[in-house]
Amino acid sequence: MNKRKTVFVEGSISPAFIANSIEKHQTKTSIGAHDIFLGQVRADQIHGKIVQAIEYSAYTEMAENKFHEIRETTFQKFDLTCMHIYHSMGIVKAGEICLFVFVSSPHRKEAFKALEFLVEEIKKEVPIFGKEIFEDETHVWKVNS
């Protein structure tokens, strides 16, 4: 029913891409509510150095399996019309978008609940690894809290 979709995009996710994605839903008039989560790379200060970018890598095949499972579970749990997930691979600079999750439903409450569930599952279950890179080209590995 729901064919496998590509989640990973190279580099950051542009505001224009997000706007275009919203625009594409104007023909789907059973939708009454969209909810969107945008993950943005933070310029954290770690041991006196400031994060300039995160370089993402993944166990791609397992990650795609997990995204598929999470999509199926979310569709079963919530009354959604559609769902889109995009995650960056490679370098994303501080201030740029690295995760775009977009859910649409006839009504707002389902959209709110589904979005929170989705984002939490993605953070917990998908084997993606972020390397926080500093200006002097040293790095630390990020761990989700």
């Binding site: 397992m62 998908v126 993606i128 989700n144």
Partner: peptide, 10 residues
């Protein structure tokens, strides 16, 4: 077989 450190997507 794969060795996976803690995840940090998003």
């Amino acid at each position: 077989i794969a060795l996976l450190p803690p995840f940090s997507g998003g």
